[in-house]
Amino acid sequence: MCDSCGCNITPGNRHLVAEGEPGHQAIDVLQHLLSANDHAAAHNREHFDRHGVLAYNLMSSPGAGKTALLEATLQALAGEFRIAVIEGDLETENDAERIRRHGVPAIQISTGSACHLDAHMVHHALHDLDLDAIDLLFIENVGNLVCPASFDLGQHRNLTLLSVPEGDDKPAKYPVMFRAADAVVFTKTDLLPVFDDFSIERATRYLRELASAAPVLNASVRSAQGLAAWLDWLRDDMRALRARIAGGEAVRPAVQPDGAALHAAESAA
């Protein structure tokens, strides 16, 4: 250790010496790195709230059955709610076309090489939707258990899907994603007899080990097992969210990146 080559400067004490460098000026910022995204997300959320739209962000790995669950949901809720869907994929309009077949407006966002949706992309897509004609908006994020969890879109809720063939330890392997979930839906549960090493109990325990109290639901689109319970959960949740919003609460997913909290403090100030 010496005072000439810098070897005594550690991450713990660097801030004490940085300001001393000649000709340099240190500015303390303390801002979320994604503050531009958080700002756009807050803007989207204001749009949703002003038009009485509830927004659910669906996340999972590719192929977990997000679009299939949406299709079953649209069919069941037709006539009950006015629904629209924003679809995120790297390429193709395939998923939006599947949704439109049910007579539901769908906007496809093609992200190119981006592995997640961000608030700006969603804002752009909102220009193509008549929010006054919608009660419920599903945002189907890019299939990916990593990146989408880091970007606030302005949604009220995060739903994370885990399909039986993926294995029951996904919450332990992808903690950031599963910690962000307001509810977890185990999909393709008709395959449980085939994939008998998948234990719903174990998957739930891994989720609880992330300090998550999120409700867990089981749904198989193919056998329709669990679909009624999923739809009841959704109806109850929408009712609860509407009551909170009517009470003047700014409703967001339960787990927020710290930047969103900072931004909330900023707009309140």
């Binding site: 801030h15 000709g23 910022v29 979320h32 300090a211 990146p257």
Partner: peptide, 24 residues
């Protein structure tokens, strides 16, 4: 027990910017 609250560990913060201002 799993009923815990996160105190730190999810930060993604810009803390400080040091500008090479005056010299130039």
């Amino acid at each position: 027990d799993w009923h815990t609250q996160l105190l730190s560990g999810d930060e993604l913060l810009l803390e400080q910017v040091e500008l090479a201002k005056l010299a130039e």
